[in-house]
Design a protein around this nucleic acid. Structure first.
Lengths: 256, 256
DNA sequence: GAACGTCGTTCCAAGAAGCGGAACAGTAAA
DNA sequence: TTTACTGTTCCGCTTCTTGGAACGACGTTC
């Protein structure tokens, strides 16, 4: 096995284990041979990793197939509750989903991706699609743009350099200049808009939430089908609701 | 490094990585040296692991300290949504919390532990303590006993042999015979009771939820301070609510 | 402002630990 | 019973992890 691309001096065994976890997440439960062929590893090696992860209770073995275990639930839950103020965010997202009836979420940037940290689906909201923990591009989401708008210019440039601007629909922003303009507008109006830039027929708005210092903590957003989220309702009621919620969160973060 | 206790032929590097994750979860963010002394590893080794996990986006580096990353959120979320019917459970737990005003949860057995899969806190509910992902002993919880009551006798014995019966309060069941009797009673009355067996002053009731086959999927439970959860209310209203919810879940699991 | 302590990071030779082909075992279908 | 799959164990070869030591980057103290 050669050094490959990754920067030298990382523990290869750990990366193999992580690849196994990711594959099990994407494909669901798998058997030893199945996983071995999928990852192009010898059966014995695959078996050793699965055994290691199972003995440490990170996987569960159901007869002949291995599954992602619930141990990850505790670690995942910790990853969001460790930051103060995040519990409060949950309630706000619930309120937003309740009031708008659409899909509401709190999104945070991590490793150059927009991560869904909390999500609640209102009664009209679409059940399918991205749930908690999903990682999507920043430049094609309302929350992502709301977050990036708060960044210094060089950080945005770094983002574009390392991640590029993937075209997901005909409406996606794909040029550096267009993105800079869009972020400027976002900053001025105080919230980000995603008009079918990530998925056709899906529209969303997102407002930034600031930390007690001036850094951006994340963004609250609401999204739904383009025919239901009309301009007037969206740009008045929904935006005001989001801005109010963000403000409450910021005040609570400052004085607690 | 010697073979230690673990059964031969597991990947040591993976276990080191997992220990790092667990330590970061328990202690919060840590620096390289801090973690190295905590785990009794050389600085360079610790650093290599942290780097590996960070490059794969499972940790985040905030200046000089490393934290659990949100990538675990996606894996954790998958671990509960992969089983069909679990989305529905979330709603039921919310309803129970709403109606009782106390802390309601859905608990599943995994690797001989009771794992909190969903939890919702009613308006009177105690905010502190165990949240989603927590793993506690089966024999000292209402949900755990409700689950174990469905097991064949030999499985219960296996549990006692491998896990023992830890005494957590003066009320905890600590003898094999007493446990068998208690499970018999639980089976007869149809629900499990935890009277300060896990924590002093805390009482709970739990009902099993069966899979479409006859195996037990998990248990719904409600708990609160002993002075508020009085016998009459608990054994009539709350139990009936739980039994009804469990029944709805079972029907939905059977026909979907 | 020089010197110190403390942090994180990089380097590289020694050897411990993971690798993987092959043989074995267990199960279900033909 | 045979065949064709599974998952699991074994063990010698060799690769990859290891960890002490040196380096670099802060920040603090005298």
């Amino acid at each position: 096995m050669v050094a490959e691309n990754k920067s030298h001096s990382t523990v290869n065994s750990v990366e193999v284990a992580l690849r196994i976890i990711e594959t099990l997440k994407e494909q669901g439960g798998m058997g030893v041979t199945e996983l071995a062929t999928e990852l192009d590893l010898p059966k014995s090696t695959t078996h050793r990793y699965l055994k290691t992860l199972t003995e440490n209770e990170y996987l569960v073995q159901n007869g002949t197939t291995y599954h992602i275990g619930l141990r990850f639930l505790g670690v995942g839950e910790f990853s969001r509750t460790r930051r103060r103020g995040f519990q409060m965010v949950k309630q706000k997202v619930e309120e937003i989903a309740e009031e708008t009836g659409e899909k509401a979420q709190f999104i945070v940037e991590e490793h150059g991706k927009a991560v869904y940290v909390y999500q609640e689906i209102g009664e009209k909201g679409v059940k399918l699609g991205w749930g908690v923990g999903t990682r999507i591009d920043l430049h094609s989401t309302s929350a992502g743009k709301a977050i990036m708008a708060e960044w210094p210019e060089e950080r945005v440039e770094e983002y574009v350099d390392t991640h590029g601007l993937r075209e997901l629909t005909p409406h996606t922003i794909t040029s550096h200049e267009a993105l800079m303009e869009e972020l400027e507008e976002t900053r001025e109006r105080g919230y980000g808009i995603n008009e079918q830039e990530h998925v056709d027929g899906f529209i969303a708005v997102g407002v930034p939430v600031h930390n007690s210092s001036d850094t951006v903590l994340g963004a609250l957003s609401v999204g739904g089908p383009v025919n239901r989220l009309q301009d007037d309702w969206l740009e008045q009621e929904v935006i005001n609701l989001l801005l109010g919620m963000a403000n409450e969160l910021e005040l609570n973060l400052r004085y607690s």
